[in-house]
């Protein structure tokens, strides 16, 4: 299992890009952290999610 934003998700083996495609996240408005480090945008397609990973997707909203 992989913990994503605090929830256990059964997505081991998928790439980050594949996982994100199943969600409502707008890719232009997010930053993704995996196991304490940022995942560069250019690596979403090559980053494979593995059992035990902790992922956090921060999604920005407008206003400031």
């Amino acid at each position: 299992m992989i913990k994503i934003n605090g929830m256990s998700c059964d997505v081991a083996g998928k790439t980050l890009a594949e996982y994100l495609a199943t969600t409502n996240f707008n890719l232009a408005r997010i930053a993704v952290e995996k196991n304490g480090d940022v995942v560069p945008k250019a690596q979403y397609e090559t980053t494979v999610l593995e059992d035990g990973d902790t992922v956090e997707v921060v999604s920005f909203v407008g206003g400031g």
Binding site: N26, R29, I30, A31, V38, P40, K41, F60, G62
Partner: peptide, 21 residues
């Protein structure tokens, strides 16, 4: 980061985390 626009916020945050860790 004190931008207004959500996409600009994401651009800056990603840029800083990647290039100025």
């Amino acid at each position: 980061e004190a931008f207004d626009d959500a996409e600009e916020k994401a651009m800056l945050v990603n840029g800083i985390l990647e290039k100025l860790p």
